[in-house]
Amino acid sequence: MMIAAATAGLLVAMLIVLLRAIAGPSLYDRALAVNSFGTKIVLLIAAMGFLTGRPEFLDIALLYALVNFIGTIAMLKFFRYRHLGVASTAKGKAESGL
């Protein structure tokens, strides 16, 4: 019951954040919304594990927690340097001219 209410709340939150990701005026708003969406998906998968009575699905939530980060970092890298191969150093920054 509690888990069901939490799941419903998470679904509403996901819808709102997704609308921000679609509407968001700047690219950063979109990136922020997608990152937040990922966190909510982790919570949703964990909650659904309890809802269906099979909490071993947490393996996937764990994987999301690891992988969502990589996607966000790649986007930021691309925003900042317009290139994925530059090192995140002062040197790389100077070379990319930003």
């Binding site: 997608v34 659904m48 269906t52």
Partner: peptide, 20 residues
């Protein structure tokens, strides 16, 4: 760029659906 980000969100949702 927006399409790329939304594609990321799409596969996140897809995976939650597969779990369900």
């Amino acid at each position: 760029f927006t399409a790329t980000m939304l594609a990321g969100a799409y596969s996140l949702t897809c995976a939650a659906l597969f779990v369900n």
